[in-house]
Amino acid sequence: MENNELSPEKSLQLISDMISKSRAELSKTTGKPFLIWGFCVLATSLLVWITWSQTGDPKWNLLWYAMIVVGGGLSLLFQRKGGKQGEKRIARTFIGSAIDTTWILFGCISCSVAVINLFVAIPVLLYILLLMGFATALTGSLLKRPAIIACGVASIIVCIPLGAGFLSMGPDSTLAMSLSALISLVIPGFILNGKASKTPQNV
């Protein structure tokens, strides 16, 4: 790109193209964390379901704490790998910061709820399902992606009744978390990555 003079139409086109490119970059960087955490939650919930069902011991729920360490480690690893490949030059967007804050708050509140649950029995699964669906819908709203908003809302509508009693409150209730991970994290992750890869990189 050079510093040529422009016609008004070409100027508007250029502005529109550059803004679309920035938005596509944001989708690309948002999709990966969704997939990492989505598969972590999905794998952990299935593992907890299997072990809890087989042994009858609810202590297998402690695996959720291990998932936080594994998910955090994988996120850091992929972030560094992306940086080394030059995939991501540093740019911080207002929307990106708002999305980061949403998910950091979700993580902090979920961990707090899980820790409180060690001392006082509370419906931890329901709180987390509700928060996860809400965080996904909010992310979709910030990115202006109706499909992601729909995933968040669908996750709440489908999974809350399952977690609240349609499934027995024993090991089977963990399956509500598997379904929620699929609807509110894995599917949106694929949608965001798909959108980003379809956008032309050179305008």
């Binding site: 510093n3 422009l6 250029l14 490119k21 920035s22 938005r23 910061s97």
Partner: peptide, 23 residues
């Protein structure tokens, strides 16, 4: 602003909190 590169730079920065030179 009525220059291709300067307008592109401003358009990129408009939606960003900050961006580095390489980006």
């Amino acid at each position: 602003l009525h220059s291709e590169l300067r307008l592109a730079v401003m358009s990129v920065l408009l939606g960003l909190k900050e961006a580095d030179f390489n980006y």
